[in-house]
Amino acid sequence: MSKEETTPTSQPPSAEFVQLFTRHQRRLYIYILAQVPSPVDAEEILQETNIIIWRKCEQFEMGTNFLAWASRIAKFEVLKFRDRNRRDRLYFSDTFIEQVADEALVASDQLELRRSALIHCLGKLREKDRELIQQRYAPGENGKSVADVLGRPVNSVYQSLGRIRRTLMECIHRRLAVEAGQ
């Protein structure tokens, strides 16, 4: 069933390439998100990026830095996406993106560590808070739709979400500090 899809190029990518590709998906996503701060847009850009990466897989030299290579493609896709949608959406300035993007790529080194800290911290949340975060980040949901479902004023939901995110941030900080100390 997926046979056609497995051969988009004349030469199917090597298993090694595929592993690199798979392993870096999340980092690419965060890299893109730092430049277009809408998770949905970022997913869309990642999709475009993936297709190009796949198409150009033969151009990648094994042994070189995959993330550096892929992030150049991603960056180009971010610019393309912005140009396409500039009229109806709000975006950061070019200066901002220039300055933030590279640092975002470096910082994404820490991603896995931060992620396991986040998982730990989610577990520490109060049940109600965890549920709220869960609802908020369910696909297609946002603060407003959650407020509608809960019958709560939207501002109070925003406040709760803000408080929970701050709690998570602090917890992640502490957790990472503890781990660094060990």
Binding site: Y29, I30, F96, L111
Partner: peptide, 27 residues
Amino acid sequence: VLADNGARRLYLEYIDLHGTLHWDTAQ
């Protein structure tokens, strides 16, 4: 964000949290 390194870090940390929750979380 552009004024300060610490601010940039905080921005990226928020993006990180926000993005990871999006990526990993589903109801």
